[in-house]
C-alpha cells in the first residue's frame, strides 16, 4: 500500500523496507537514502522506470536486485519516454478492461542529474508537456558519478570534477547550476518540489504528494555523493542539511504554480560552512567563496520575492 496519510513526524514514515540491502552503493550515498524512502512511499502498486546511472548499476547486477517493484531500465536519456510508454499502456489496458480500471498503479521515473538536466532533458520535457501521469524523481549528486565524477549541467559554480579540474588557468566549474525547477515550471505541471534527505519528513511528504498528484510531478532531491563531493561517509546528512541552512538548496513546493518554502531558514549560515566540508570546493579562495555567497544571497532574495515572504533570512555568522 502506498503511503496515503500526510507525514508530519518521523513516525508517519512507513516501517516496511522495500529497498533491499545488498546493493553496491557507496557507504554514505545520499541516493541510497532517497531510494529507501521513495520505495516506502510508493508501495507495491508502482512501476519504476529508471535511467542509467549510479543507482541503476548498483542495484541490479544480475541475478540480484534491490527492487521489490516492477522495474524497467532502458537507457540513460529516456526515463521520461519509458515512463510515458508505461503510463500510456496502463491507460489503454484499463480502458480496454485488461487491467482493472479501478486499480491505481503509479508510474515513477527515477534519474540522476545527468539523465535529467542534460541528456534526458528532451525526454523529460516531452513527458511533462504531454501531461503523463508520472512522478519523476531526480536524485541530484551534481555530476556524472557513475562514469567517475564528470561535470553535468547540475554541477555548481566552482566545484571540482574530473572534467572541471583545478588547474593554473581554470579552477573548477565555471558556470552556476542549471535551473531545473524553472524548466519544470515552464511546463506548468501541477506539482514540483525540492527536497533533501536531511529533512526526511519533508522529503517523504513531498514524495507522497507527488505520488498523489494526477498528472506529471517532479521532485528534485539533493543527493550528496561521498567520493564525488569528497566528503566523509558520515557527513552525508550534515552536508545535505547545511545545503539547506546556507540557502544553497531551498526546500520548495510549487503546487499548480504557487510556490511555498516548506522549511524556513530564519537565520542563514554562510556558504563557507557548506563548502568547507567538501573536498570538491577545497581549492576555493576567499574571493571565490565571496562570489558564491553573493550568488546565493541573490538567489535567496529571488526566492523570497517569489514566495512573497522572508522565508530564508539573512546570513548570521
Amino acid at each position: 500500500m502506498a503511503l496515503s496519510k500526510p507525514v508530519r513526524t518521523i513516525w508517519d514514515i512507513p516501517r516496511e523496507e522495500r529497498f533491499a540491502p545488498g546493493h553496491t552503493m557507496c557507504q554514505g550515498c545520499g541516493a541510497a537514502i532517497i531510494m529507501r524512502h521513495l520505495t516506502k512511499v510508493i508501495g507495491k502498486d508502482a512501476i519504476i522506470v529508471q535511467a542509467t546511472g549510479c543507482v541503476e548499476v548498483t542495484t541490479t547486477a544480475f541475478p540480484r536486485t534491490s527492487w521489490l517493484n516492477p522495474w524497467l531500465h532502458l537507457a540513460f536519456e529516456n526515463a521520461g519516454a519509458g515512463a510515458s510508454g508505461v503510463e500510456a499502456a496502463l491507460k489503454a489496458l484499463k480502458r480496454k478492461g485488461v487491467i482493472d480500471p479501478n486499480r491505481k498503479i503509479k508510474v515513477v521515473a527515477i534519474a540522476g542529474d545527468g539523465g535529467t538536466f542534460d541528456i534526458g532533458l528532451q525526454s523529460l520535457s516531452g513527458m511533462l508537456e504531454r501531461g503523463h501521469n508520472v512522478m519523476y524523481v531526480v536524485y541530484d549528486n551534481e555530476a556524472y558519478m557513475n562514469t567517475g565524477i564528470q561535470r553535468s549541467g547540475a554541477t555548481p559554480l566552482g566545484a571540482w570534477t574530473t572534467t572541471t579540474p583545478v588547474g593554473k588557468k581554470m579552477r573548477g566549474e565555471l558556470r552556476p547550476k542549471k535551473d531545473l525547477i524553472g524548466i519544470a515550471l515552464a511546463h506548468r505541471i501541477p506539482y514540483i518540489a525540492t527536497a533533501s534527505p536531511a529533512y526526511p519528513t519533508d522529503m517523504v511528504e513531498k514524495l507522497r504528494k507527488a505520488y498523489e498528484t494526477e498528472g506529471p510531478s517532479l521532485v528534485h532531491i539533493i543527493s550528496p555523493c561521498t567520493p564525488g563531493w569528497r566528503i566523509r561517509n558520515e557527513d552525508t546528512i550534515k552536508v545535505a542539511r547545511l545545503a539547506v541552512l546556507t540557502g544553497m538548496w531551498v526546500l520548495l513546493e510549487i503546487v499548480n504554480g504557487k510556490p511555498r518554502v516548506t522549511v524556513k531558514v530564519p537565520k542563514r549560515k554562510p556558504v563557507r560552512e557548506y563548502l568547507k566540508l567538501q573536498g570538491r570546493f577545497r581549492h576555493l579562495t576567499d574571493e571565490e567563496i565571496a562570489r558564491i555567497q553573493k550568488m546565493v544571497d541573490e538567489y535567496v532574495e529571488e526566492i523570497n520575492r517569489w514566495v512573497g515572504e522572508q522565508a530564508i533570512g539573512p546570513v548570521e555568522e
Binding site: 537507457a75 529516456n78 510508454g85 508505461v86 500510456a88 499502456a89 480496454k96 528532451q122
Partner: peptide, 28 residues
C-alpha cells in the same frame, strides 16, 4: 481505433515509449 497515441518529441523517445508500453502488456 481505441489506442493511446503518444505524440513523442523524437524517435528515440518513440521507440523507448513503445518498448516500455510492450513491457506493460500493450500491443505497441
Amino acid at each position: 481505433l481505441d489506442a493511446e497515441v503518444i505524440h513523442v518529441e523524437g524517435e528515440h523517445s518513440a521507440l523507448s515509449a513503445v518498448v516500455a508500453a510492450a513491457a506493460t502488456g500493450a500491443r505497441a
